[in-house]
Structure formats: structure tokens, C-alpha cells
Write a protein that binds this DNA or RNA. Structure first.
Length: 946
RNA sequence: GCGCUUGUGGCGAAAUUGGUAGACGCGCUAGACUUAGGAUCUAGUACUUCACGGUGUGCAGGUUCGAGUCCUGUCAGGCGCACCA
């Protein structure tokens, strides 16, 4: 019997569906294990061979855990909302839902061919109302919450309202957009609109007037992680800063918890570091500076409180509200002109060239330590969005201040012993402080930092600032609130209507609010978002339902929000929904949450490090505060699979001809390299006839072949993409070699976490291995098996394999597992093993990797249950013990020859025997033995001296 | 500039965590069986040397009886952050 993988794979895929082999239920008698892949966005291009890499790795893990007796949850779904479907809709008029569903079906078809153990009964789609019901619900909960800084926890907004009614904004320590001050009387005197505006300052989901990344090309705002180098990640359109009213999530409130949580989870250092950078915690001091000849003052933030005595000027961000207050009449026009200039510069321009620009405001600030008057400048190098938007400049110890001081000829005062600041600033936070204070400026101050290290000086200054009421210790974060609305159609609608300008939540019982139909997916003629095209999009408050826009009277029928939610809304809590996907009463039941807890193993790419993986951690922490999620961190262990790059092939056309020259003959010709479809190239040899058929313009192509009469192509590693013609489709590989070979080969390619180019050429080795494995089990007449127990030799090979594979699966080191299988099979074939013990064990061990083949073999061995329900073999160390032990005899660390000893030989005996060995004499000639080191089972090292 | 990470044959990569470097696969070489081979099997394959041997894990040092592995410095590639005070 031949290894007929097509038949075997089809047969078992069908059986798995019929028998619901992978259906998962909450089973309290078993320990749970939750494996999850980042769900895909179903793009129109379908899956390429790189996509399943992570799915295969996690599938292997999931299957192994199941064999080890765990109740494994391994679900799959689709991140179905997204820009490409909408862009496509705009171009073609095709409803995004239609294309999305078509893409999903194609994905499913491709996934099914690879033999995953997904429980498809639990599939979720973010665009399904039954799913986004709970996205809308979570948003409403965030709207109804504020963040208590003391408790570090979300609280119902009613509590805060009660506080306002009693004491106004006094004594609150909460996450807020700005520091508002009002009394209880003031609060009570305000109308609904004003109260609503004030509460927005505190809500976790709030509407705020903020600087947003406006992308005119896409007609929408974007989150920070959707913008790279001043252009949009999707489409690469320029992005500008614009002030707009938008829905936001107060992610920044959770900054400290997001940071602390990183210590409790098993993620790679690099991704933790990326998140730490993104959160950007910096501990510093806020110091208040009074403005000379004025009652006004302003606060600056600094991490270098030790440099208070070296301040020679102050700088405000051009966008700062202080600029107007501070500017004197004489400087007014100059400042205005400068602010105008800065506004005209795009984010991208500011990012690329760090020009030294700025203007003097005419005012001075008084250094609270020295009483010195320092000029206040305005410059674009100070950012409005970080700290207080104002800084104290210490040119001697900050390179940016230094550049500014040099440019505008401002004084530079060094504060660290031995620091030479004639050419550049001394930024390092080390050294001994001097000039603090300078006796010529402040002869009487009772405070000195001189002689301290920088670190001591920072600490001392903090104490001084606090005691003298000059400021306070402050922690700043770079992490900004997430802008949560998009001016797009294809996204979750907000369950919000506007009651006389006040954003009001549609009652929870009326959710979900379904995405309305529109004629056109573009913004309306009046510039409103696409939902403005919907004709049935108004909220009837009395009848609690959506009605036609024409009925809007702003008494009982009100307009509904036209914005939709961004892509990350639906992906931020989907892992919870898998635990209880059909629940229509809640996001998930208490029981499901208690049973499944959180994702034990999460597999996905690093590209989500600052997007999805921050948002979902935030979202989960919020739900944890509500008591919905039972674990503070959603993903306990994270594995980042590498990217599979494409290996492109090139043909070389001689310029101005239709003649193509082989790679090894191309020197001497003036050629243009042209990408050629890798699917008509095999081992870099072009299929010339297929090439002629590939495109009409190549029908009559001529070729300069090499000496062997072949056309050799050039190659390069590039991103796998359609335009490079280097996309390798998994379906084709499955068709040619089978899913089990594909699975095995993807793992064999190298460590899961490493990026590597796809190379179909190596796949033969894995395919051969499976054929050999098949032949080992099945000879012409049928399965060869004897019920005699395995021999000592067989057990040794077998248990070496069990040990290796069991370890490797925990460590995601699948490439070495495959190698171990190959070695073991060779051994067994050599022995000619027929033992049932050997064959059954090997069938179970290969199950996670090649489930179809394993099922078939299991059946051939006479079982009528699925191999998925078999038991993972127990490793027994006794079988690995040897009668004799081999040790290398080394001289001065250099190994020379092996020696065999009886097992358990003593170090002294081994040493004696080694020295007495005739072979040793040659190496010891002319030397003296200094000492002998015996490493049991490994090495006997003889240290020699002349 | 700061942070993380990776450097091992012609290629993808291993190395029990400090103990025979290059497992396993691809490729290549030779042979066998074949009408044929892009099928299968067998043997070989880091470099160098006729050989004994010598040299080899980006580079330069160090610790150690012994270093791919640990330490210091340095170079190169990849990723992240970046006028963050």
C-alpha cells in the first residue's frame, strides 16, 4: 500500500466533522487549557503559506495538551471589520459584508485543508451583531465609569457625581483630562449639557476635543499605532494633526497597571520592552515658576530636578495656552508669526528635520530656587502633549536645550564637576554636582547640592521642592488615550444618541444597535461620516427603537451617533467571548469565566505589540474591575511567530528585446531583472514553456540557456506579496504533498519565533520522512505488528523520542522534534521493529504534528477510537540507562579519544584507567600531569604541564 | 541617540545550558537498481593537509583544566521608541 495522503486526509477531515471530534465543553473533571491564535482579518488575497505557521504551532500544542489529559479550548474566528473591505466597497459598490463573508468562506476552506483542531462551534465574527452587542455593552460600561487613582480601579460614575454634589471637585484623585476646580454649588447650578461636558473629563469612555491624527486620504482619524513616520499604516496617506471632537478611551489611566502587569506574564523580553517604551513611564518633579511682573505662574515637568541651578531660559510649546498670556505687546507679532509657521508644518516635516527654531515672548520666569529671571521662549521642540507643555531649559545638560542655547546665544552653566560643555552638552546622569548653588547668584540660600552625585541631588531636590511648596513629585506617561471613533462605515456603530447635544446611551436592553444600510459608503455631501447616508438612523426614545431620520424632532426622536468604532474595538475582548460564544444574556457567563479563566497560550505576530496587545490588556483590566473577567491579564504566555518571507525569483530580459538570459550567463548583457511567478520555477530552474504561457507578451520569448540547457533564475528574499509573484499558496502544497507534510515542514523550517524565507525545495525531506513512516507501519500486505514487548534497544530509541518531543512541545522547539522523529524512525527501521508498543507510541507522538496520518495508523493498529483521545506516552528514564558509559579523554581541554566504562564507574577508577590507556601515553609524552578532572558520563580531562 | 535582539558549513539550522561544534533536512559528490529519472536505496560531504595533524561558531581581549555558550570591548544585520524634558 502506498501512502495515499489525499485519501487519508479527506477521510479524516470528514470524520472529525461528523464525530465533532474537536467540540469543547466545560468539563470540571478535567484541567482546562486555553490556546488561542490572533484571529485573522480575512483579506481578499486568501492565505499564503506564512499565515498558518502560528496556527500550526498552536495546533500542535493544543493537540499535545489534549493527549496529556487537558480539556483544551482552541477556537478560531475572524476580525471582520476593517478598511480594505470598505475601500473595496467604495470602489465597486459591493457591500463590505458581501466581500467579507466571501473572504471568510475562502479562509475557512483553506484552513480546513490543513487539519486544525479548532472548535468551529465557537467561531466569532466581529461584524456579527450578536458579537458586537458586547463590544457596545463594554463601551457603555466604560462611559459609565471613572478611574480612581487611589484604588487604581474603575468605579461607577454615580459615585463621582455624588461626590460632586457634596464637595465639588475637592479632594478627588481620579484620572482626568484636565484638572478642573469647582464647588458643589457650582456643580448643582449647571444644566445637563454643562454637567455632561464636565463628566467627560472623567469618564473612561469619553468625548473629548483633542489633537487627533487626521488622515484625509482615508477620511478618518487614526490611533497612534496606526500612524508610522507621519503616514497611515493602511495605504500610506499623509496624516496631519487636527483638533476634533472624538470618542476616546482613557487608556492612560491604566498606564501603571499595564506596566506592572508585564511582570506577571510570560512574554518575550523584547515585546515587554516595546510595551514599556510605549507606556513610557518617567518619574520626575513638577516645579512651579512665577512669571515676573505678573500674578501668573506655570508648571514645568523635569526628570532632572538636580539641575535647577543651571536653568538659563524657559520654553513653551507653541500650542500652549500660556503663550498668549505671557507674550508682551512688543513681541506679539513675532510670536504670532512663529506660531503660524509651526502650524503650517506637518507632523512629518517636524519629525524629519529637527530645525532649531523659536521666538522670545518678552516675559521672564523667576527660578524659585535662585530668584533669577529667565527669559521665556516659544519653540516647536517642546511638545504640547507631554508633561505640561513647558520646560525649564538646562543647556549644559540637555542636548536639545544646548542646541537651542547655542543657536540663540543663551548662557550655558555647567553643574557637574569636570563636565566640558564647550562643544556639546553633558547629558549623562552621573558625576558630582557643582555650582549648585552659585555663590555669586544666591549667596544666602540654605540649600546645596554640591558634592552629591546626580542621583542623590535629584532625591534631595524632590524633598526640598515638596517641603517648600514649590511643586510636587510627579510620574508622567507617554501613553496617550486612545481615540475611539472613526469616520467610516464598516465598523461597530456607537449605541449613542444626541439629546440636545448631550451624548446619551441607548438603554442596555436595546442592544445591539445594528449597523444601518446605506446607499453609498463615502462621506455625505455635507462632509458627515458615511453613516450620515443612512435613512433609518434616529432613536425614538419613547418607543425605544430605531426609526427614520425624518422623524427627528429632538423631543422624543434624536439623531444617533454617525461615527463607528475603530478596528481594535472588536478585537479587544474576543478571547472572552470564545469562552461562552452563544450567550445572549452576557458577554460570558460567570461559570464560563471561572472555568476558562484566561488565555494560557496566545500565538500571534509582533506587529500587534503596541496596538492590539495594549488595547486588549486595557480592555481586560477594565472588565476585571467590573468583575466580568476573572484574571487581570488576558494572555498568560505569548509566543510571537516569525514572519515567513517570500523567496522571489527573477528572469533577466536583455534590454529592448524579448530575450531572456539565464542567471549564470547574464554577465556581459545589459539586463533588466523581472519578477517571475515562483510557481513556474522549481529549484531556481524556470519552466520555459510555462513562462511563455504566463503572460501574452512572453508568448514568443527567446532564451539564452546555460550549458546544461536550463534557464536558471536569480532570487531574493522579500515580503511575500502578490506584486512580487512570490506567494506560495498552502492549498497547492497540500495538493502536492498533503497537509501533514505541510504541517511538518513549516515546523521543521526553523524556530517558530524566527522570521525566515519560505523555500519549497526543502519540503521533499519531510514528505520522504512521512512516506518512510508509512512504510514502517504498513508493508504491502498490511500493517506489520507483533504483540511481543519492545526490546531494550527499541525502548531506548522510543523513550529518547518521548523525552525529546515532550520537552520540545513545552518549549515550542518543534524543528528539533521533527529531527528526533527522523532519527528514531531510522533506528526502528534498521532494527526492523514490529512491536505494537513501538508503533502505538510513535503514532500517538506524531499525532500533534500529523493528525491525519496518525489517525490512519491508529486505525490500522486496530483501534476504533480517535487517536486524539489516546494517552500521551509516559517517559521512563530507566530505559535510557546504559550498561556502559562513554567518556572522552581530553588533554588540556582538547578531546582526543573515547573510552568505555561500566555504568557507575567511580571517578577515581575512570581516571586510573584513562591514564593507563596506551593511547594516553602519546599525548602525555614530555608533560607532567598537574591534575585530572572527571566529569561523570562526559569527559576525563588531564591537565598537563611541560 | 536610547532600548531589545540576532551573528555557527553552499543553504535552513542543532548543541543535554560550561564538556567530542555542525544533530536533522536541503543541496552537492560517488555508487546501486532502472528504457528513463525531478522515483527509490547506499556511502560521503566545515576548512586545510598525501598523511600524522592543524584551523574553525562576526572581530579583539578576558575568566576557566575546558567557552558557540559566561564577562569586557567592538563591528554588522533586524526590530521597537525617538525633539518625552
Amino acid at each position: 500500500m502506498e501512502y495515499n495522503f489525499r485519501e487519508i486526509e479527506q477521510k479524516w477531515q470528514k470524520k472529525w466533522v461528523e464525530n465533532k471530534t474537536y467540540k469543547t465543553t466545560e468539563d470540571a473533571s478535567k484541567k482546562k487549557f486555553y490556546v488561542l491564535n490572533m484571529f485573522p482579518y480575512p483579506s481578499g488575497a486568501g492565505l499564503h503559506v506564512g499565515h498558518p505557521l502560528g496556527y500550526i504551532a498552536s495546533d500542535i500544542y493544543a493537540r499535545a495538551k489534549r493527549l496529556q489529559g487537558y480539556n483544551v479550548l482552541n477556537p478560531m474566528g475572524y476580525d471582520a471589520y476593517g478598511l480594505p473591505a470598505e475601500q473595496y466597497a467604495i470602489q465597486t459598490g459591493q457591500h463590505p459584508e458581501v466581500t467579507t463573508v466571501a473572504n471568510i468562506n475562502r479562509y475557512r476552506e483553506q484552513l480546513d485543508k490543513i487539519g486544525f483542531c479548532f472548535d468551529w462551534d465557537r467561531e466569532v465574527r466581529t461584524c456579527d451583531p450578536a458579537y458586537y452587542h458586547w463590544t457596545q455593552w463594554a463601551f457603555q460600561k466604560m462611559f459609565a465609569s471613572y478611574f480612581d487613582n487611589k484604588l487604581q480601579k474603575a468605579q461607577p460614575i454615580e459615585q463621582l457625581i455624588q461626590h460632586f454634589e457634596k464637595e465639588g471637585s475637592k479632594d478627588i484623585d481620579v484620572a482626568q483630562t484636565e484638572d478642573l476646580c469647582f464647588t458643589a454649588e457650582e456643580w448643582k447650578s449647571w444644566d445637563e449639557k454643562k454637567k455632561s461636558d464636565v463628566l467627560m473629563n472623567y469618564r473612561i469612555a469619553f468625548m473629548g476635543e483633542t489633537m487627533v491624527n487626521w488622515c484625509a486620504g482615508l477620511g478618518t482619524v487614526l490611533a497612534n499605532d496606526e500612524v508610522v513616520d507621519g503616514v497611515s499604516v493602511r495605504g500610506g496617506y499623509p496624516v496631519e494633526q487636527k483638533k476634533m471632537r472624538q470618542w476616546c478611551l482613557r487608556v492612560s489611566a491604566y498606564a501603571q497597571r499595564l506596566l506592572d502587569g508585564l511582570d506577571t506574564i510570560q512574554w518575550s523580553d523584547s515585546i515587554k520592552e516595546t510595551q514599556k517604551n510605549w507606556i513610557g513611564r518617567s518619574e520626575g518633579t513638577e516645579v512651579e515658576f512665577k512669571i515676573a511682573d505678573s500674578d501668573e505662574s506655570f508648571t514645568i515637568f523635569t526628570t532632572r530636578a538636580d539641575t535647577m541651578f543651571g536653568v538659563t531660559f524657559m520654553v513653551l510649546a507653541p500650542e500652549s495656552e500660556l503663550v498668549d498670556k505671557v507674550t508682551t505687546a512688543e513681541q506679539k507679532s513675532a510670536v504670532e508669526e512663529y506660531v503660524k509657521y509651526v502650524k503650517g508644518r506637518t507632523e512629518r516635516e517636524r519629525m524629519i528635520d529637527h530645525k532649531v527654531t523659536g521666538v522670545f515672548t518678552g516675559s521672564y520666569a523667576i527660578n524659585p530656587f535662585t530668584g533669577e529671571k529667565n527669559p521665556i521662549w516659544v519653540s516647536e521642540y517642546v511638545l504640547a502633549g507631554y508633561g505640561t507643555g513647558a520646560i525649564m531649559a538646562v543647556p549644559a545638560h540637555d542636548s536639545r536645550d544646548y542646541a537651542f542655547a547655542k543657536h540663540f546665544n543663551l548662557p550655558i552653566i555647567p553643574l557637574i564637576e569636570g563636565a566640558d560643555v564647550s562643544e556639546e552638552s553633558y547629558d549623562a546622569k552621573e558625576g558630582i554636582v557643582t555650582n549648585s548653588p552659585r555663590k555669586d547668584v544666591t549667596p544666602y540660600i540654605d540649600f546645596s547640592l554640591n558634592g552629591m552625585t546626580v542621583k542623590e541631588a535629584i532625591a534631595a531636590t524632590k524633598v526640598y521642592v515638596k517641603e517648600h511648596g514649590l511643586g510636587r513629585v510627579k510620574v508622567n506617561y507617554r501613553l496617550r488615550d486612545a481615540i475611539f471613533s472613526r469616520q467610516r462605515y464598516w465598523g461597530e456603530p456607537f449605541p449613542v444618541y444626541y439629546k440636545n447635544g448631550v451624548p446619551t446611551m441607548i438603554p442596555e436592553e436595546c442592544l445591539p444597535i445594528e449597523l444601518p444600510e446605506v446607499e453609498k459608503f463615502l462621506p455625505t455631501e455635507t462632509g458627515e461620516p458615511p453613516l450620515g447616508n443612512a435613512t433609518v438612523w434616529a432613536w425614538d426614545e419613547k418607543n425605544r427603537k430605531i426609526v427614520e431620520n425624518t422623524k427627528i424632532d429632538n423631543k422624543t426622536v434624536f439623531p444617533i451617533e454617525l461615527y463607528t468604532m475603530p478596528g481594535f474595538a472588536g478585537s479587544s475582548a474576543y478571547y472572552l467571548r470564545y469562552m461562552d460564544p452563544h450567550n445572549d444574556k452576557a458577554l460570558l457567563s460567570k461559570e464560563a469565566a471561572e472555568y476558562w479563566q484566561s488565555v494560557d497560550l496566545y500565538v500571534g505576530g509582533t506587529e500587534h505589540a503596541t496596538g492590539h496587545l495594549i488595547y486588549s490588556r486595557f480592555w481586560n483590566k477594565f472588565l476585571f474591575d467590573l468583575g466580568v473577567s476573572v484574571k487581570e491579564e488576558p494572555f498568560q504566555k505569548l509566543i510571537n511567530q516569525g514572519m515567513i518571507q517570500g523567496r522571489s525569483n527573477f528572469v533577466y530580459r536583455i534590454k529592448d528585446t524579448n530575450t531572456f538570459v539565464s542567471f549564470d550567463k547574464k554577465d556581459g548583457y545589459d539586463v533588466t531583472p523581472i519578477h517571475v511567478d515562483v510557481n513556474i520555477v522549481s529549484a531556481d530552474i524556470l519552466d520555459v514553456e510555462a513562462f511563455k504561457q504566463w503572460r501574452p507578451e512572453y508568448n514568443d520569448a527567446q532564451f539564452v540557456l546555460n550549458d546544461e540547457g536550463k534557464y536558471v533564475c536569480g532570487w531574493a528574499v522579500e515580503k511575500m506579496s502578490k506584486s512580487m509573484f512570490n506567494v506560495v499558496n498552502p492549498d497547492m502544497i497540500v495538493e502536492k504533498f498533503g497537509a501533514d507534510t505541510l504541517r511538518l515542514y513549516e515546523m521543521f523550517l526553523g524556530p517558530v519565533e524566527q522570521s525566515k524565507p519560505w523555500d519549497t525545495n526543502g519540503i521533499d525531506g519531510c514528505h520522504r520522512f512521512l512516506k518512510k513512516l508509512w512504510n514502517f507501519f504498513v508493508k504491502d500486505e498490511g500493517v506489520q505488528v507483533s504483540d511481543e514487548p519492545a526490546t531494550k534497544e527499541e525502548r531506548k530509541a522510543l523513550h529518547t523520542l518521548i523525552k525529546k518531543v515532550t520537552q520540545d512541545i513545552e518549549q515550542f522547539s518543534y524543528n528539533t522534534s521533527v529531527a528526533a522523529f527522523m532519527v528514531c524512525l531510522n533506528e526502528m527501521t534498521k532494527i526492523g521493529s514490529k512491536s505494537r508498543e513501538v508503533k502505538e507510541t510513535m503514532a500517538v507522538l506524531i499525532t500533534p504534528f500529523c493528525p491525519h496520518l496518525a489517525e490512519e495508523l491508529w486505525q490500522l493498529l486496530g483501534h476504533n477510537t480517535s487517536v486524539c483521545d489516546a494517552k500521551w506516552p509516559e517517559f521512563n528514564d530507566d530505559f535510557l540507562k546504559e550498561d556502559s558509559v562513554k567518556m572522552m579523554v581530553a588533554f588540556n581541554g582538547k578531546a582526543r579519544f573515547p573510552m568505555e566504562f561500566p555504568a557507575g564507574v567511580s571517578a577515581a577508577d575512570a581516571e586510573k584507567a584513562a591514564l593507563a590507556n596506551p593511547q594516553s601515553e602519546k599525548w602525555m609524552e614530555g608533560f607532567q600531569v598537574v591534575k585530572v578532572i572527571v566529569v561523570p558520563g562526559k569527559m576525563i580531562n588531564v591537565v598537563l604541564k611541560k
